[in-house]
Design a protein around this nucleic acid. Structure first.
Length: 347
DNA sequence: CCCGTGACGGTTGAA
DNA sequence: TATTCAACCGTCACG
């Protein structure tokens, strides 16, 4: 747990158990698929298990989003302020009331329906934690202002106060060109606040180079946090390749972890604090420190480094596949060779 | 050989 | 503060 080292899958790809693949790879998977490359080839090329490729593509086809689902957390709260208030009222009206009785009353009074009525244990907890001994004025709203919000945000695009910090260079975020950040939209704010293009993104991290991916990508701390991206269903239709390039890269820039990573990722030096060094596991000695993952502020500027590769890297891989999605069928090898030596040691 | 699927071991975060 | 629990993850193996 501590140092979440990446692990290496059967294909030689690096992954972190329990964590989503980097956004860039997800995008890449979709993009390749849209170029007509078959899942099995994508799998080999990106070194991501076919099961994963299959899943991501399936999700994409279904939802239009490449993003992973919201990890962690709980289901939407049933103990809304209103419910708590009712419970409090019941309790005040009859201090000796049992939790199950409260539950029944909540249902009877229509405060809740059978689907969202709190469990008896929840009610007990509420009585204990939020209402305490009635003598206290307990004002739910006051006591936990934040939680009520969170409740909403569960499915919501994590209200992310745009970390202006992350886009120091003024790399938009704050005002995506024409991309309204659909503020209050639940679930899906389909805005990808960024001007960067996918190719950009993709280009950034040499995909062919796991090491790059590893270090470079750093792990966006939590995809769920990617502001605009989150669960976004991005309009597959309107963009090139179905990817709304304009925004995608939002992700790579959000890692709060970024600052950790940005310095680069000392693979081992990783401390729990930056949960996501991950992709720079020891596995192959990747994590080329040099990859200060783009904290776009700097990286963009000297994009020359590797970022600029505008889609450049893509080509090698796809170029030969793309043209003839049929004919190209087999060259498993060519793809493979592209592997950077760096990986060799791995296995 | 390809690919969908489910078990598995893992992480996350609200309660 | 620590624990619980249900959500999701990607890999792997099977069919």
């Amino acid at each position: 747990m501590d140092q979440t080292y990446g692990e290496v899958n059967q294909l030689g790809g690096v992954f972190v158990n329990g964590r989503p693949l980097p956004n860039a790879i997800r995008i890449r998977i979709v993009e390749l698929a849209q170029l007509g490359i078959r899942p099995c080839d994508i799998s080999r090329q990106l070194r991501v298990s076919h099961g994963c490729v299959s899943k991501i593509l399936a999700r994409y086809n279904e939802t239009g989003s490449i993003l992973p689902g919201a990890i962690g957390g709980s289901k939407p709260r049933v103990t809304t302020p209103n419910v708590v208030k009712s419970i409090r009222d019941y309790k005040q009206g009859d201090p000796g009331i049992f939790a199950w009785e409260i539950r029944d009353r909540l249902l009877a009074d229509g405060v809740c329906d059978k689907y969202n009525v709190p469990s008896v244990s929840s009610i007990s907890r509420i009585l204990r934690n939020k209402i305490g001994n009635l003598s206290q004025p307990v004002q739910y709203e006051n006591t936990k202002p934040p939680s009520s919000q969170h409740a909403l945000s569960y499915n919501h695009v994590y209200p992310y106060s745009y970390p202006g910090a992350l886009s120091p260079t003024g790399t938009k975020v704050s005002s995506p060109p024409g991309v309204p950040v659909t503020p209050g939209h639940v679930g899906i704010s389909r805005a990808w606040p960024s001007v960067h293009t996918v190719s950009n993104i993709l280009g950034i991290r040499a995909f062919m180079d796991p090491a790059a991916i590893a270090g470079a990508d750093g792990y966006p701390p939590k995809m769920e946090d990617w502001p605009g991206v989150n669960r976004t269903t991005f309009p597959t239709a309107h963009c090139v390749n179905g990817l709304d390039k304009s925004a995608i890269d939002a992700d790579i820039k959000y890692p709060q972890a970024s600052h950790n990573i940005s310095t680069y990722v000392p693979a081992c030096a990783y401390s729990a604090s930056n949960q996501y060094g991950v992709y720079g596991g020891p596995a192959g000695g990747y994590v080329t420190p040099g990859h200060h993952w783009q904290s776009q502020s700097s990286s963009l500027s000297h994009a020359g480094g590797g970022m600029t590769a505008h889609a450049g890297d893509l080509h090698p891989a796809m170029s030969f596949k793309h043209p003839a999605r049929d004919g190209d069928r087999k060259p498993p090898s060519p793809l493979i060779k592209q592997q950077p030596e760096t990986l060799h040691g791995v296995h």
